[in-house]
Amino acid sequence: MSEKTALPVGQEAIQEKGWWKAHRFLILRRLTQAFFLGLFLLGPWFGIWWVKGNLAGSMTFDILPLTDPFVLLQGIVGQHWPEMTAIIGALIVGVAYALIGGRVYCSWVCPINPVTDAAHWLHDKLGLAKGWQPKRNTRFWVLGMVFVVSALTGTIAWEFVNPISMLHRGLIFGMGFAWTFVLAVFLFDLVVSRRGWCGHLCPVGAFYGLLGQGSLLRVSAVNRAECDDCMDCFAVCPEMHVITPALRGADEDTPIILSPDCTNCGRCVDVCAPDVFKFTTRFDTTPAPARASRRNKQRQPEASRAA
């Protein structure tokens, strides 16, 4: 372990790169989340109907249909054949996330992400225990159960309890029972299971992870030879198990993070002082040649003096 593990997470990156570069993807994520949510609220709040609907299904400028393919499939297994506009909308969304990475939805669009991030921040501040950690494949069992219940009941089952939809309804219609679901997710991540909701239970994340398995956009530990073992990337990653194969792999192993669990949130890029990580494509598989590390650079003057 490096002595730098004693520093606050991201502190070295702030010192080396400046505050903006050490937080840029986090800030951009918050802006995009607020942007997409704001588009849906323009109509109900201000009467500006550029976008009608919500993240489950919408129509932009009365021209562009967008449909959550997860919702569409629930309707189909529930024996409700969708209209052509819904099918086109689902194809548009599905192809987009298949190319850029399915779980980009989780970190850049989903309005519940700031809720779970806030719970994780408070969890760390309070020094709470890790808590119960269900197996990561639990979310796939939940995903399967959603389709089974939809088939048995003839409904879009997840929408009855979906905290994303509940948050949207709460913002439009005011505080009410819908907020109970959002609060439950926050408390679950805070006191029951650290990063438990998105990382272990949410079927939406499971679905989009499957959708984006072959996506082009990836994070790469391209400069992994420069890693100084500060562990900050592991501390901020919501799916920290995805980092190890790329960062700790042998020379011949790909530096690309290929796991569909990766949300492409960019926090590992933010907090890494030696710039080990970068966004790239899945075809950029060659690690960069090792540069002279800062540790060696610091030793060179000492060696010169000794000579």
Rank of each mutant, 00 (worst) to 15 (best):
K4L: 08
V9P: 03
E16Q: 11
H23M: 02
R24Y: 01
L28S: 07
L37H: 03
W45R: 11
N54D: 15
L55F: 13
S58T: 11
M59S: 10
T60K: 03
P65Q: 01
L66V: 12
D68M: 11
L73Q: 04
V77C: 02
Q79L: 14
Q79T: 06
P82C: 03
A96T: 14
A96Y: 14
A98M: 10
L99I: 15
G101T: 09
G102R: 05
S107P: 06
W108F: 06
N113L: 00
D117N: 11
H123T: 11
K125I: 05
A129R: 14
G131R: 09
R136N: 01
N137K: 13
N137D: 13
F140K: 09
V142T: 02
F147G: 06
T153I: 05
G154K: 03
T155C: 00
I156V: 14
F160R: 13
N162D: 15
L171S: 07
L171A: 06
L171P: 06
G174W: 03
A178P: 10
W179K: 07
V182E: 04
R195V: 00
Y208W: 15
L211W: 06
S220M: 02
D228Q: 14
C237L: 06
I243F: 06
A250C: 02
E252W: 12
T254G: 04
D261W: 09
N264P: 00
N264S: 13
C265G: 05
G266S: 07
R267L: 10
C268S: 09
D270W: 02
V271Y: 07
K278Y: 01
F279H: 01
T280N: 04
T281Q: 04
A290R: 13
S293K: 08
R295L: 06
Q300G: 00
P301V: 06
E302V: 10
A303H: 08
